[in-house]
Design a protein around this nucleic acid. Structure first.
Lengths: 140, 140
DNA sequence: GAGGACTTGATACTGGGTCTCATTGTGTGC
DNA sequence: GCACACAATGAGACCCAGTATCAAGTCCTC
């Protein structure tokens, strides 16, 4: 999985440096969403010696390539989720942080309707869904 | 319009103090979205002498009452929009910042579909639409 | 290998937002 | 009306995420 990230970066013409490999591994071993602060804490715990700036820079790079996406949690914090580069939306489990991706599930009809009613031309949208994953739902 | 805000606050059992009236007036005279920084700048320009903290506190209060909502702009910044307390979504004009509200326009079908596919129970969602309002569209 | 461009870490900085606390102002009960 | 309890205030310190800068180090190509 960290291989996937690295391969994609390589294809994008980005250098595969030591710090980048290590951060990619950190991302790979997290499942679900994570914040930049999580990665920074992980890196410190493992004494990787990578700087904060490097982590933010890599996240930017990954976001540019669509390998990671920023989502806004319901509490207003920012998180990142590793994902496929195609357009899609995220389901975030509010209990455990697990992420599922859903592709086109009728949102175009919604934007078209909103556009018709308001007279706006819609250029982009952001949809985030929050709830409980199957595991967390059965856990209580 | 600032009267509306004040009336709603009054009904919610919060005190109608001088600073709150002044900030409500600032919000009322902005149309479309604004950031906390905008309000702070307005307050400084008019020498209102209200503190930053007071402005943030009032925004929190208004958000709690559903009179104002936080939206995340495409560039990642936070903005607030004055709005009705009912559930709805926002259309944000990326050119001039104008806001339109749209109520239920089929999003429930989307969340139901996403839930069916993923097995998640969906508790809440956030949908933001970005585009150009009729004025800005015809302006170029 | 050598070399130049890209990348890095340290550090300072910025901007949004929160916390604290002594002081002030509000609304209620009388 | 008035006094009083308590909510609200402003100032300023503080915190945190993210950015900018820059000298030093690393990678990849040739």
């Amino acid at each position: 999985m960290s291989d996937e990230l690295l391969r994609a970066l390589d294809q994008a013409g980005v250098r595969l440096t030591g710090p980048r490999r290590e951060i990619a591994a950190l991302i790979a071993r997290r499942n679900g969403h994570f914040t930049a602060a999580d990665l920074i804490a992980d890196a410190n715990k493992r004494r990787l010696g990578v700087g904060r700036a490097t982590i933010f820079r890599l996240l930017d790079l990954l976001a540019e390539q669509g390998l990671v996406e920023r989502v806004d949690l319901p509490d207003g914090r920012h998180a990142y989720v590793p994902c496929e580069p195609s357009h899609h939306h995220h389901l975030v489990c509010v209990a455990c942080g697990a992420i599922a991706e859903v592709e086109d599930c009728g949102i175009d009809a919604v934007t078209a309707e909103a556009s018709r009613r308001s007279g706006f031309t819609i250029e982009s949208h952001r949809l985030e869904l929050f709830g409980r994953c199957p595991n967390c739902r059965s856990a209580n």
